[in-house]
Design a protein around this nucleic acid. Structure first.
Length: 884
RNA sequence: GCGGCCGUAGCUCAGUGGGAGAGCACUACGUUGACAUCGUAGGGGUCACAAGUUCAAUCCUUGUCGGCCGCACCA
């Protein structure tokens, strides 16, 4: 740092300089600290080919603040980064590229060629996001970084799979699943998003065989009738129960299907008759199972109708629906059509309508795991912050559904299940490429073609990244020390996807929860509260923000907006505001810098009142910081720091120090410079977790030669020896008096440069003494020539303006003409307001029940306020009388 | 349908059973050597509405209105 500081802080070079210094110096590597304890955060791995968005920026900010805080507190701290292969989205990007460049689909390539192309893509674009995280200041130990498709991660996935498979918890089954016709893959329930769509109820007629009866059936999806294998009625429904056991005739395909009785059918709903399509409806699938119905799949993988679609074969469901309705009209089996708004499932990634379809897939039975994951939270082995989010977690985990984990994709972890062509034996293997069947020892094996749901590997991530299941790797990476990890920081949208799965897998495979706390942070939205999206163009690019305002300001903005809230509506102007704050700190330092040569390294014991006050305020701030960061109340941390630095330190303490520092008294100057330096050292320490760069930069100038970088310094703690209650009380009065004097000046348009005399009247002896001792300060801050402190029994100036503060009357005598009417009016306004307050207390004190029931400290407070306000009222009344 | 959250200053939000808060925005004045990315001072709120519990309710309870979210239901 040069001797001449620029007038405004320039973050750019400072930031890259310090990041490099920290990284090159291995400052992010975990080191044993004074507590002997460890602290670990596993970063939610972003998509390998993704770019940093505002949500990531918040992730990084909160996690890095916690890590830096704990590191300074003396914990062996590890911020462990990684990247996710993001099966669906990465494959989709590569498929798009393949089509753009070669007009080919993945099916035109061999599996191996497609995989190679994807790896090439990953090598080309992967890792950008890590560089962006570095710009944000993330103090991750990059040596730990892992990719979900690394061999180590694969090993963990195979180990977990085999273990669950052998326990019978992973099984293959023909079951109804959500089919995404665009991805041409199964997806899990959680990946289906329901959206309201306008549709219609179509009322149709199904004939009953060997009778004239026509059953009226309502449906939103008439085209699925081609897959109907029953008609269901409620067995208690008098209208229809006699038909149970007879056959109905499905229109168009003229299939004869049984009429079954099933309690699921609601007599009140619709027409009371239900067409049953076990192949394409979740509830119908269950009915089908109960009645042993045939399952007919009428769809191709791309969502068009197959040969069961008869004349509609090859059409999409939407087209087929229209044609079916037309055909039914032709056949005179169409009754009616009513508009209807209903929820339709869409693929989270693909956006297309999801088709329920029966298909052979791999599932995890999560019943037992889900239950124990609920117990763990109920027993506080893992705690949600804010606590309310546990309800969301419980609502998922108390109603577990079997988890479909197979995906018909290429990019991902291949399912490690092999089938022997010779003896048909099927088994799961931890080996990548087993050579022979364990049963018949023949070598003609085929592996299941599917890959696993990305969330399967994500669920193992806290274990995988710490070396599990390999003993050597676990020792090397510190599994024993870091697992369970300390806290998981993430958004509420993946409580089910990720938090729940990690909980289940962690407990199942290691017997321990994977993290002790989960902090659910807000979703970053635009300033109008809208979700950031490409189509709205309202996204905020973190890198652009760092370039415009500096990473420190951007981080501080995000942290200041983070507490237990659900949304952060991020206004770019806000970042500008905090950039100004960062600049303020820079300039505050620019002011004290020339005096630092005088400063001693130890805080002296003979502090004056102002110094005791600022030390006390600093101490109070340290207390709030320690408590609020621990509770994830970063909003409280930031506001405590902001007001301490801006108001207490800059507006009052620095202003009060100017006289001393430019004065003659070397002893006073030395002591004041020492206190300023002491405070500033603590300020940069306190701020470091949120704004690491400027603080490290300033630390270079402040530190003793023997001291290391700020990132390794001890975080300030609250200390009893630094409490100075009396000085805090007096300074509050002092501030009230100075502000009152300034207010008086402005009320009669006294120019800021013009000096006035100040007469203060108080009967509080120790306050009077304090005011006498701090006359110089009052003079400078209120621009007064002379100060006079007297008892209230003394005469008041005749021609003056006056303001009543707690225990003290502030008078500014004036030359020339005073508009007394105006002064009386001003005082009367004050009197009215004060009287109103006073009456509230007066009423309480005259209420016997209050005196009998209220807590003693409350009564004391009320009494104090009562007498303070009474004193103020008397002052005001007296002055009004004198002026009138 | 079930469940949850929220309604406090123009905006974004803290907050507590006992004196209504912050930041931003706004108004007036101001270039005294840290800072105009600044300073000083100021205006602004029936704490959605109603009832109840309490000595005391913005805070607890119930209801109403308004906004949001999750899950379920797709006859």
């Amino acid at each position: 740092m040069s001797d001449e500081l620029s007038k405004t802080y320039e973050p750019k070079e400072v930031e890259s300089k310090w990041y490099k210094t920290w990284e090159d110096g291995k400052y992010f590597a975990p080191k044993k600290g004074k507590t002997g304890k460890s602290y670990c955060i596993i970063m939610p791995p972003p998509n390998v080919t993704g770019i940093l968005h505002a949500g990531h920026a918040l992730d990084i900010t909160t996690q890095d603040a916690l890590i830096r805080f704990k590191r300074m507190k003396g914990y062996e701290s590890l911020f462990l980064p990684g990247m996710d292969h993001a099966g669906i989205s990465t494959q989709a990007k590569v498929e798009a590229k393949l089509w753009d460049e070669q007009k080919k689909t993945k099916d035109d390539l061999s599996r191996e060629d497609f995989l190679k192309m994807t790896w090439d893509w990953k090598d080309e674009f992967g890792g950008n996001i890590a560089n962006q995280q570095k710009v944000m200041g993330a103090s991750c130990d990059w040596d730990y970084s892992m990719f979900t498709l690394d061999p180590e991660a694969n090993e963990a996935v195979r180990k977990a799979f085999v273990s669950l498979y052998n326990e019978g918890l992973i099984y293959q089954s023909d079951y109804i699943i959500n089919w995404d016709p665009k991805l041409q893959s199964a997806i899990s329930d959680a990946e289906v998003i329901h959206e309201e769509k306008n549709g219609a109820f179509y009322h149709l007629h199904y004939k009953v065989k060997d009778s004239d009866i026509k059953l009226e059936i309502a449906t939103t999806r008439p085209e699925t009738l081609l897959g109907d294998t029953a008609v269901a009625v409620n067995p208690n429904d008098d209208r229809f129960k006699h038909l149970i056991g007879k056959k109905a005739i499905v229109p168009i395909c003229n299939r004869e299907v049984p009429i079954v009785g099933d309690e699921y059918v609601d007599i009140e709903k619709g027409t009371g008759c239900l067409k049953v399509t076990p192949g394409h409806d979740f509830n119908d699938f269950d009915i089908g199972k109960r009645h042993n119905l045939e399952i007919i799949n009428i769809l191709n993988k791309d969502g068009t109708l197959n040969s069961f679609g008869l004349e509609f074969e090859g059409m999409t469901c939407k087209e087929a629906r229209k044609k079916t309705v037309a055909k039914l009209k032709e056949l005179d089996l169409f009754v009616d059509e009513k508009n209807h708004v209903h929820q339709v499932g869409h693929g989270e990634r693909s956006g297309v309508v999801i088709e329920p379809m029966v298909s052979k897939q791999w599932f995890v039975n999560t019943d037992a795991m889900a239950k124990s994951s609920v117990d763990a939270v109920e027993q506080n082995q893992m705690t949600f912050y804010p606590k309310g989010w546990e309800n969301t977690y419980f609502s998922y985990q108390r109603n577990p559904r079997n988890w479909c984990i197979s995906r018909q994709l290429i990019w991902g972890h291949r399912i490690p299940v092999f089938t022997c062509q010779s003896c048909n034996h099927q088994w799961a293997d931890e080996e990548v490429d087993p050579s022979a069947c364990p049963k018949c020892s023949k070598g003609d094996l085929i592996q299941d073609p599917d890959v696993l749901d990305t969330w399967f590997s994500s669920g193992l991530w806290p274990m995988t990244t710490l070396g599990w299941p390999n003993k050597e790797r676990m020792a090397e990476r510190g599994f024993e020390r870091f697992y369970p990890t300390s806290v998981l920081v993430t958004g509420f949208d993946i409580i089910f996807f990720w938090v729940a799965r990690m909980m289940m897998m962690g407990e199942k495979l290691t017997g321990k929860v994977p993290f002790e706390k989960t902090y659910i942070h807000a979703i970053v939205r635009d300033k109008l509260g809208r979700k950031m999206s490409k189509s709205l163009g309202n996204g905020i690019d973190p890198i652009e923000m760092c370039e415009t305002y500096g990473a420190d300001a951007f981080r501080f903005t995000l942290a200041a907006g983070s507490g237990y809230n659900r949304n952060i509506n991020l206004d770019v102007e806000r970042i500008g505001g905090y950039r100004n704050f960062i600049n303020k700190i820079w300039n505050a330092y620019r002011f004290i810098k020339p005096h630092l040569d005088l400063a001693k390294s130890e805080l002296p014991t003979d502090l004056d009142a102002q110094e005791k006050w600022i030390i006390s305020e600093l101490n109070q701030t340290a207390k709030v910081m320690n408590e609020s960061i621990e509770d994830f109340r970063f909003d409280d941390s930031c506001s405590a720091l902001y007001s301490f630095i801006y108001d207490s330190f800059c507006s009052w303490f620095i202003e009060l120090s100017k006289g001393t520092l430019s004065g003659e008294d070397l002893e006073l100057r030395t002591r004041r410079a020492t206190v300023l330096k002491f405070c500033f050292k603590d300020i940069v320490k306190l701020l470091h977790p949120f704004s690491p760069f400027i603080t490290e930069e300033l630390w270079q100038d402040l530190k003793e030669p023997s001291e290391d970088l700020l990132i390794t310094q001890e975080y300030p703690e609250f200390q009893n020896s630094m409490i100075h209650e009396l000085e805090q009380e007096n300074m509050n009065k002092f501030i009230e008096i100075v502000s009152g004097a300034r207010n008086l000046r402005q009320s009669v348009n006294i120019k800021p440069k013009e000096k006035v005399d100040l007469h203060l009247f108080t009967d509080e002896e120790q306050l009077a003494k304090f005011l006498e001792e701090n006359q110089l300060g009052i003079k400078e801050l209120a621009n007064a020539e002379n100060i006079n402190v007297s008892k209230k029994s003394s005469d008041r100036p005749q021609k003056a303006i006056m303001k009543a503060t707690t225990h003290t009357e502030v008078f500014v005598p004036l030359e020339g003409v005073i508009d007394l009417n105006e002064q009386v009016k001003r005082l009367e306004t004050d009197l009215k307001k004060t009287t109103k307050d006073f009456e509230k207390y007066d009423k309480k004190l005259s209420n016997e029940k209050f005196l009998a029931n209220a807590k003693p400290e409350v009564i004391d407070d009320v009494k104090t306020n009562h007498s303070d306000l009474k004193e103020k009222i008397e002052s005001l009344q007296e002055r009004i009388k004198a002026f009138s």
